[in-house]
Nucleic acid binder design. Structure first.
Lengths: 201, 201, 201, 201
DNA sequence: TATGAATGAGCCTTCATTCAT
DNA sequence: GATGAATGAAGGCTCATTCAT
């Protein structure tokens, strides 16, 4: 599922989710988990209702599979981005933020559903998901902290700044449109500047 | 409902919502609109199901009333904050951001529900709500733009920065806890610094 | 309630039902007993819901009061009609049929509701109502039988014919409109001819 | 569903309605459409509530299906009856009336429900139903008119008489019992005489 | 009588899920 | 995998009715 090797974390092919998860993505993005029925989902997937249950044991399992797939792609890209950068704090920051931005632009719905349906996960599933999300946040924390320690970032509150960077990137999924006024690269450039502003001051 | 005069936009008494809206707030915050049944709501409010319908004609009407009440308080506080500031761009920016931050801290659940249940509004209601939300965003846009024109903010992308400021403040509602490690005033101070960083660079 | 003396069984003033019964009449005629709520009824009567209960103890009591009022007026008019006729079988038949016809024309809704909501009466109420209705039918039976015995009616099946006469008159309530193409007296005249046809052959 | 060929419009096998419609028939006949709940209906049909909705999308759809099935059988039998008669007005009248009578005897409940629940049909459905009912009435009108034109019926009011004939036949459904005192053929014979009385005079 | 608030029971309908074929 | 039939539980909402004021 598009977990590309270290070289092409910038490249976004059309997402290749299994039928049911793809349908779930559309439905959950539009109506939310609780607002979507298995019948909606089956219809969107072009399957019968028992056809859906042939692949997944429950609606909850579908949500979990979708959210995990999203998180796995995000983490894989983040790692690939960092791996592609020179061992230098500000370059590592730039590359991680760029990857987060691109993900929240080109996997807009995925990112939106993943961040808005956490509460719909059953407790045990939530735990597993939140663990991965924290791993992602820690990557940002580490990069910011390293920059501060190296003296290239001036912020007196590294962790607050790191969370703000994350918030900034995640927020992009709420409003980005492919047909918006800004070319993707320009949008990335501008928000990289904004992100740097968060860690500089 | 807590629409304070211009002097006390910083003061947050315990919210004084009608029984049913208060129950809706708790339920929607925890389980979302579609995840909450009228029976949940009635139980939380200490009413019977028809008791709820005595006050509101439908679940949708409850959501609308709640979201409008939230938005109205937010707008009233924003206006009061601006009205209390000297006519000087950077002071106006600070005061508006501070008000937004406090609102998203002390009206945490309200802010969270309002921002996460927009899609659950019926189209005609959504329109009304989004209009108010845009009004709020325009206040930020204006303050940032004024600062750029006055030469006190250096950002080359005023509108992107203004949106990022909004995202930063709204995001606070996702993680803030009253019993967190930071005193409220300290938290405000730190995020004011972060917000300034977004418009400076 | 318009139970006129023996002289004016032909005269129909606007019905003078108590507010609630009048509202019940309109509502039951349009939507049926089970299709009408107490709230519908209160709104139509211009009363509050408890206002309705001030006059009647239950919805069922309203139905019963209405149906009894209707039946009482019908019986009173039938008796008045017979009392006004010469003691001669064919004149008595004519006068009774004419009265039935007029009632089902000018008390159209009343007659319709009374005949269509019998099954909505609680068993003990139904018994009381059906007793009165049978009394009415027996008046027709008697008049037809008398005519046959006197040799002025030729039908070999007096009771079947009597029932058919009743059906014919009751049926008028299903289609009669005040603004229909036939003047009331003409309509009565024609159906009197038809009724005579039923007992003649 | 018992839409017999032209030869056997006199033959009435036990009605062969689908489970749910058969249950609806019993329930609506006894308690009316609004007085019947889907739960009543499901219990009578020996199904669960969703089992009912598996076959029909709404209670209204059930009513419509039932009423249409009834009307279709009535029309088919009327046409078959006329097709089986010699091209002679009084024979055509007899055969049509006989068919109507038999239908209202042997499809008693169907006929009763169809005639008493018209107002429970949603407006668009009502239109469709009433169209068919008018078709039936026009068959009677035509047969009576033809008889008058041919000089075999003496009535000066053919359309009023035709309506009375219809009322007479429909009325049978209100009181006929299979275990009544009259054999079916005798009952038909008597009411044929009554019907002729309506068009003769 | 009106108003306002309330309720247990019940309404029509849909839910997630299952099973036989 | 599809189809068709089924279900216990629950959904939003309304019912007839009551009581305090």
């Amino acid at each position: 599922m598009t977990a590309p090797g270290s070289a092409d974390w910038r490249r976004y092919d059309p997402p290749d989710l299994p039928r049911v998860l793809d349908a779930a993505l559309q439905c959950f993005a539009e109506q939310g988990y609780h607002g979507t029925s298995i019948r909606d989902l089956a219809a969107t997937a072009g399957l019968s209702v028992p056809g859906v249950y042939h692949h997944y044991r429950s609606k909850q399992e579908i949500l979990l599979a979708l959210m995990m797939a999203v998180m796995d792609e995000l983490l894989a890209r983040s790692e690939a981005a960092l791996a592609s950068a020179p061992d230098e704090p500000s370059a590592r920051f730039d590359v991680l933020v760029e990857s987060l931005l691109r993900f929240h632009m080109f996997r807009r719905q995925q990112a939106f559903v993943a961040s808005s349906e956490i509460r719909s996960l059953a407790p045990e599933n939530r735990e597993a998901y939140v663990g991965r999300r924290d791993t992602q946040q820690r990557m940002i924390d580490d990069v910011v902290t390293a920059g501060v320690e190296a003296g290239v970032f001036g912020t007196p509150y590294p962790l607050d700044a790191a969370r703000a960077v994350s918030t900034l990137c995640v927020g992009v999924a709420s409003w980005y449109r492919e047909d918006g006024p800004l070319a993707p690269d320009e949008l990335v450039a501008r928000h990289l500047v904004l992100a740097r502003g968060l860690v500089q001051a």
